[in-house]
Design a protein around this nucleic acid. Structure first.
Lengths: 215, 215
DNA sequence: ACCTGAACACCGTTCAAGT
DNA sequence: ACCTGAACACCGTTCAAGT
């Protein structure tokens, strides 16, 4: 029972999961997900690429661990903040904030399926809020999916739009102007607006009103 | 004015956008998105990889054209099918069906931003339904985003779960059993259910009820 | 005009060998 | 035990040259 936890016998390792994860999140913030390669991460740690595979079996494993780390503390957002709808809103907002805290955070999260304690703790908190509010277990589970879907989907769009090289507004405006899309033309201001918090709050309010109606 | 549309002068080209797109969608269905490389696509068309770049500037361009093609006809789903809520539901269901029609269809769509007529026509139809129902232009635009977010997000999960090698249910059940997640444990049947149509219809009903409450 | 051939600058991953 | 060095089997993209 001392083999995995034995004290440093030879030289101290230059690598370990925690330090690698920190460096990977730093690199993500500086360079974005497309530039986060195992080779570049190894460079940032002054190590050969192959050495990373002692701590993460695959790149997918590393990304999953990064997503799990991003969710640290998010489950605590509901603590005593009013009724179920306010608690659900607090959890969704905290998740959006956590994803926004890292460049391409939503893409990292969307591409993984963590079953770590932060992610499952968050899910448990959401389902707990719904069950306490009187929703059947099945509906509570489905409300979790809908809430996470919405939050991740929204933040994916938000971070895609904010990134350099995203010419979305102009391109969209041009395409709408060139074609026969009367309804898109009429709603173009909101369609090309970058007030993402308003978009998010609209969707969240719709989601909560819909859940309330189904209780 | 005859230069781009001039009749075949030399040998007939082995490549063109339409044929390449068809082959790419075939390859996607047979092998999945991860195996859809420019080199493998070129192989399937008996051509060198570089030749594809005469018709698509980048791989991203090709994927965008594929997404656009998947959306063919989806905008017509709302034609005279009851009130606004039934029309919105019909559009969302048609989009899910269109994405499910191709392996990794949701991933392809989520990774692109088509401004083609199928995609914009669908968006115009959704916004049109909402405006006709009396929603303000801004809310109609935001309802579009919420609806597309939900539909793509749901179908992403659905296709991820249905794919080979996706051990989601067991892994999740194991993780929930190992940790202290009372609410997840209680709702595990719904959480691990593969009746995705029910999940989708639940979210859609919540979305529509929420929109109705805000009108 | 359309495609080939070959290169450029990369990837993730594996694994014998060193220390 | 931990990491290096080097390889394997690929990528997307570019572009001179052929036909």
């Amino acid at each position: 029972m001392s083999s995995p936890a034995s004290p440093a016998r030879g030289r101290p390792p230059r690598l370990d999961r925690a330090r690698t994860l920190r460096t990977a999140l730093d690199l993500l913030d500086r360079s974005g997900l497309d530039a986060l390669t195992m080779r570049r991460l190894a460079d940032a740690m002054d190590v050969q690429a192959g050495a990373l595979y002692r701590y993460f079996a695959t790149k997918q494993d590393l990304l999953t661990a990064m997503a799990e780390r991003m969710m640290d503390g998010v489950a605590d957002a509901a603590a005593g903040s009013g009724d179920w709808s306010e608690q659900l809103a607090a959890l969704a907002r905290a998740m959006r904030t956590a994803l926004l805290a890292h460049r391409d955070g939503a893409r990292v999260f969307a591409g993984t399926h963590s079953t770590g304690e932060n992610t499952l703790g968050f899910a448990d908190a959401v389902v707990g809020v719904m069950r306490a509010a009187g929703f059947p277990d099945d509906d509570a589970a489905r409300a979790l999916h809908t809430t996470v879907n919405f939050t991740v989907g929204h933040t994916l769009e938000e971070q895609a739009a904010l990134q350099p090289g995203s010419s979305s507004p102009d391109v969209l405006a041009g395409a709408v102007a060139a074609g026969a899309y009367p309804h898109l033309a009429a709603s173009l201001p909101a369609l090309t607006s970058t007030d993402f918090t308003r978009h998010f709050e609209f969707g969240l309010a719709v989601l909560i009103a819909g859940l309330r109606a189904r209780r």
